[in-house]
C-alpha cells in the first residue's frame, strides 16, 4: 500500500474532512460511553440537549465558545506560519492578569467607552510579550519554541497563583485565592439578559473576520503563509523572515491575550487559577479542525464548546465522567489530521 499525492485537492473532500473527522471521533466516543455502561444514544441525546436544547443552553455554549474562538485564531495564525505556539494557555492567563491589574481600583478614571478598548489592548499586549520572547529565542539561539511555550504555561500559571495569593489578592473573597475584581465599568455588556453571554462573542467574530481578511488580502498575510510553506524559498523571494515571524507572534500572542481579557471582563470579573479549563490547549484542536481557516475557527469553537457544555450536562444525569468531552475533542484532532491527509493523498495499491 502506498500513498500518492492527489493532482488537485477537491474542495468537497477538503470541506468534508472536518465532518468526517468529527463523525469518526464521535463514533469512538460512543464506544467509550458504552464502556461505562450508560445507554449510548441517550447519552448523545443528552449532550445535544444540554448544549443546544434551550435558550440558556445555547447562550452557555456560545459563552464557552468565545475564548475558544480567540485561542483557536491565535493557534491558526501561528501554525500557518509554522510558529508552533503551544503557549496560548499561558498567554491567556497573563492577558487576564494584566486586565485585572489595570482594570481595578479606579482604572485611571477612564470613561467606560474608552476603558473597555484600553483593557483589551492591555490584555493583548501581555499575551504578545509572552510569545515574542520564545519566538525571538528561536531565531537568536535556535531554541524550539514548542518546548519553551509549553514550559512558559507552567511558569505563568505559578505566577498567577503567586499574584492572586499575594500582591493582587482580593481581601474580600473570604480567603479564596482570587484577584481583585475589575471595576463595574470594565465589565462587557450582556448580549442576552439573564445569561452569561456577553459582547465578547461579537468581538471574537469580528476578530475572526479581520484575521481572515488580513490573511487573504494583505502583504503580511501572504508573507506569513510563505514563511510557513517554505521559509528558505520565502527568504530567497525577499520575505523578511524574522520580522514576519515577530509580527505573527504579536498577532497570535495578542489574540490569546484577548481570550483572557474577555473571560475576565465578560464572565468572571476576576482572575483565579480556575479561569481557563484548558482553553489554550483546546485552541489547538479548534484551529486544526478549522484547517487553520479563521472563519472555520468560529464553527470549530462552537463544536468544541458544545461538547464541553453538553458533556457537563450529560454527566450530571448519566454516570459518565465529563472527561469524555476532552477525549472526543482530542480524538477529533487526531482524526482531522488523518482526514486532511486523505484529502491530499490517495491510497494506491
Amino acid at each position: 500500500m502506498r500513498f500518492e499525492r492527489r493532482e488537485t485537492r477537491s474542495p468537497i473532500l477538503l470541506m468534508g474532512a472536518p465532518l468526517i473527522a468529527v463523525a469518526v471521533a464521535l463514533a469512538i466516543t460512543g464506544f467509550l460511553i458504552a464502556l461505562s455502561g450508560a445507554p449510548v444514544l441517550e447519552a448523545f441525546q443528552k449532550i445535544l440537549i444540554s448544549a443546544f436544547g434551550s435558550r440558556l443552553a445555547i447562550t452557555e455554549t456560545l459563552t464557552r465558545a468565545t475564548p475558544l474562538i480567540f485561542t483557536g485564531l491565535a493557534v491558526a495564525v501561528a501554525f500557518r506560519a509554522q510558529v508552533w505556539n503551544i503557549g496560548a494557555e499561558g498567554q491567556l492567563y497573563l492577558g487576564a492578569l494584566a486586565v485585572a491589574a489595570a482594570g481595578s481600583g479606579g482604572a485611571f478614571g477612564l470613561p467606560p467607552l474608552l476603558l473597555i478598548p484600553f483593557l483589551m489592548v492591555v490584555g493583548a499586549l501581555a499575551g504578545m510579550v509572552l510569545l515574542v520572547v520564545p519566538v525571538t529565542l528561536r531565531f537568536r539561539f535556535g531554541v524550539d519554541e514548542v518546548v519553551t511555550t509549553l514550559l512558559l504555561n507552567f511558569i505563568v500559571l505559578l505566577f498567577v497563583s503567586l499574584a492572586i495569593e499575594g500582591f493582587m489578592r482580593d481581601p474580600l473573597a473570604f480567603g479564596w485565592p482570587q484577584s481583585v475584581p475589575v471595576d463595574g465599568d470594565a465589565r462587557l455588556p450582556k448580549l442576552v439578559p439573564k445569561s452569561r453571554l456577553h459582547l465578547g462573542l461579537v468581538i471574537a467574530i469580528i476578530a475572526a473576520i479581520v484575521v481572515f481578511l488580513v490573511n487573504r488580502y494583505s502583504v503580511f498575510g501572504m508573507q506569513s503563509r510563505a514563511a510557513g510553506l517554505n521559509a528558505a524559498a520565502a527568504r530567497f523571494a525577499g520575505v523578511p523572515i524574522s520580522w514576519t515571524l515577530i509580527k505573527v507572534a504579536c498577532l497570535s500572542g495578542g489574540l490569546a491575550g484577548l481570550a483572557g481579557a474577555v473571560e475576565v471582563m465578560g464572565v468572571k470579573g476576576h482572575v483565579s487559577t480556575a479561569l481557563s479549563p484548558g482553553f489554550g490547549y483546546a485552541g489547538i484542536v479548534v484551529a486544526m479542525l478549522a484547517n487553520l481557516n479563521p472563519l472555520g475557527v468560529v464553527a470549530a469553537a462552537i463544536f468544541v464548546a458544545a461538547m464541553f457544555v453538553g458533556a457537563d450536562g450529560m454527566s450530571r444525569s448519566l454516570e459518565v465522567p465529563s472527561f469524555i468531552a476532552d477525549v472526543t475533542v482530542s480524538l477529533a484532532l487526531l482524526t482531522m489530521l488523518v482526514a486532511l491527509f486523505l484529502s491530499t493523498y490517495r491510497v494506491v495499491r
Binding site: V327, V329, L333, L337
Partner: peptide, 14 residues
C-alpha cells in the same frame, strides 16, 4: 508537532 500534541491530549484525557 501536531500529532504529538494530539497524542498527549488524547492519552491524558483518556
Amino acid at each position: 508537532h501536531v500529532t504529538g500534541l494530539g497524542v498527549t491530549l488524547f492519552a491524558s484525557s483518556l
